[in-house]
């Protein structure tokens, strides 16, 4: 367990210091903020939070899978190509244990990204709803996105500013600091917006606490887990470009199945997603994760590490 924890920790730290991972996170936040701005007049106050939710869930699904594949391929290929895998395996660590720990680390790195994006989605949904209520009362449409945009901008920019300060005065690594600060500020933003919604509510609890988003977001972890396992299996055998291409091909093949996991449209029709369904969806992903995991372990056991 200690070995597993050490490898997982190193993998998460490795990904949090990766500039491209930070870029993907910041781009996701920007997409959620901008997608809403461009549809303001088409949907108006009542539908504006739907836009935020759709943008957030699309980003979680599409960029999330890109992120998961990128993380996994990167951590495995870097270990193998730089020779650090040799160093690790010269210690009392089995190849299977090493593979599982690296894949778990990649998945948890993806979970950090997913949590950051989810926090931003919740904040934007609440902000848009609050803005919509104010806009209806005052007649000023500028309010629809005002609060949400301000918070999104803060989540996108504040971590960078704080990370720059941390880098300048405390010699923290900029990318690592920015990644963790993005997560912290996103979750703080979500918590603050929920607290405000509960406290003020704008009459008759109209904003509401969007906890019903949680099951739909958890659902999206399952396809990501499958992609982590598959990319890990590919990358122990073939080079970075080919592993990414294979994961891309898998993405295209699996495209029709994604509808089962992307529940934003169901939410917009007023459907609720019980946790039992989430559990069932998780169970459905297990055989795929296990198959790719076993394939990866087999391939890793077979290959020479030099």
């Amino acid at each position: 367990m200690r070995r597993w924890r050490a490898i997982v920790k190193a993998t998460i730290l490795e990904m949090s210091s990766e500039p491209l991972a930070l870029l993907l996170t910041l781009s996701s936040i920007a997409i959620i903020a901008f997608a809403s701005v461009f549809h303001i007049h088409q949907f108006g106050g009542a539908d504006s939070s739907r836009m935020a939710r759709d943008a957030g869930f699309s980003v979680l699904l599409v960029i999330g899978i890109v992120y998961a594949v990128f993380c996994t391929v990167k951590v495995f290929r870097r270990e193998i190509e730089s020779g650090t895998a040799q160093m690790a395996l010269a210690h009392p660590v089995s190849r299977a244990g090493f593979f599982v720990a690296k894949a778990s680390g990649a998945f948890l790195a993806y979970a950090v990204f997913a949590l950051t994006v989810f926090g931003v989605t919740v904040t934007t949904v609440v902000g848009a709803k609050a803005g919509g209520i104010v806009a209806r009362r005052t007649g000023d449409i500028a309010f629809i996105w005002g609060p949400a945009l301000a918070i999104d901008a803060a989540v996108a920019v504040l971590p960078l500013v704080l990370a720059a300060v941390a880098d300048r005065f405390f010699r923290c690594r900029f990318t690592t600091a920015a990644t963790w600060l993005s997560l912290a500020i996103s979750l703080l933003g979500a918590a603050a917006s929920i607290a405000l919604a509960v406290a003020f509510g704008f009459g008759d609890g109209m904003i509401g606490v969007p906890l019903w988003l949680a099951p739909a977001a958890v659902m999206l972890l399952f396809p990501a887990a499958v992609f982590v396992a598959a990319s890990a299996a590919f990358s122990v055998r073939v080079k970075e470009g080919v592993a990414t291409a294979l994961a891309g091909a898998l993405f295209i093949v699996a495209l029709p199945a994604f509808g089962n996991y992307y529940l934003s449209s169901a939410l917009s029709k007023g459907a609720t997603i019980p946790w039992s369904r989430v559990f069932a969806a998780g169970l459905a992903a297990v055989p795929f994760v296990a198959s790719f995991g076993l394939l990866g372990i087999h391939l890793f056991n077979q290959r020479d590490i030099s």
Binding site: F38, I40, H41, Q42, I141, A142, W145, G146
Partner: peptide, 14 residues
């Protein structure tokens, strides 16, 4: 973009 005349300040920046 639906209506540039009705754009808010945030929209115009975007």
């Amino acid at each position: 973009y639906p209506d540039p005349m009705a754009a808010t300040k945030a929209d115009r920046i975007s």
